[in-house]
Write a protein that binds this DNA or RNA. Structure first.
Lengths: 138, 138
DNA sequence: CAGGATCCCAACTGATACTG
DNA sequence: CAGTATCAGTTGGGATCCTG
């Protein structure tokens, strides 16, 4: 019998439910990488959900040209961001949240809202855990 | 001036908003790793949000003992999962979603719901993108 | 049964230099 | 300006073997 939770199908077997790796992970893995959420957030508050490359680079502290390019390529590849190239001299490139990218914002906000509310406790838990287990401290 | 989006504070400067890396990433990074969502999902549908180590291992296809242990330690460290150790022979260990862990489920579900709805389009976008740019295909 | 210790490889990330 | 190319360091993940 096939059921789903968290967008993840699982088989109900005699030994219990059996999960197999699937779609949601490959999206969460993208959002979980170092810069993606920062880029998404920055576009989310931009007029028209749109910014040029240099504006993103200036607005995100510590990101390198290479990592910004890679992050944007990944988002473009998934169709969350649209790349607008203007063949001028010097060149100008703007990045815009796609309709699908913008449609993710409410769900993302509800989730990050949970994180915001629970972050102090998580931080405290980590501190306590690290004190008890001085190995593997971050 | 300080504002927030997606749980992420940013400075409104004369050159525009400036984001700095912070809390939400370290939570999303955890959920984005290879096995965490699978473990959370499995506990979410278990009676009492509780399962023993061997049950988790059997239910998650392909996970190794080492990675299951590491994933559970990380969740325990954040306080999302509680470890119950029974000093029997042979030993028995059960893992249970904490109150905070369970409180995450609705938000997580709303987000994975978005993924579920949009996954077909994302998959299609990746396929098209890879055809246009045969390099860097996954 | 649950997990610790080791070794190894692949992927992510960063720094730097170069280019249309 | 907006990239690409290259190299190096670090981390994630898997395979295997060992133990209370």
């Amino acid at each position: 019998m096939n059921r789903q939770i968290h967008g993840r199908p699982y088989q109900v077997t005699e030994q219990g439910p059996l999960f197999t790796p699937c779609a949601p992970h490959s999206v969460l893995a993208r959002l979980g990488d170092k810069w993606t959420i920062l880029v998404m957030s920055h576009l989310a508050i931009a007029p028209g959900y749109r910014l040029r490359f240099s504006a993103l680079k200036k607005g995100i502290e510590g990101i390198t040209q290479r990592m910004l390019t890679r992050t944007l390529r990944n988002l473009e590849r998934d169709g969350l961001v649209i790349r607008h190239y203007f063949p001028e001299v010097p060149p100008r490139v703007e990045y815009e949240l796609s309709e699908m990218g913008a449609s993710m914002l409410p769900a993302l906000e509800s989730f990050t809202s949970w994180i915001r509310n629970n972050w102090p406790q998580i931080e405290e838990n980590r501190r306590i855990f690290n004190k008890a287990q001085p190995i593997d401290s971050e």
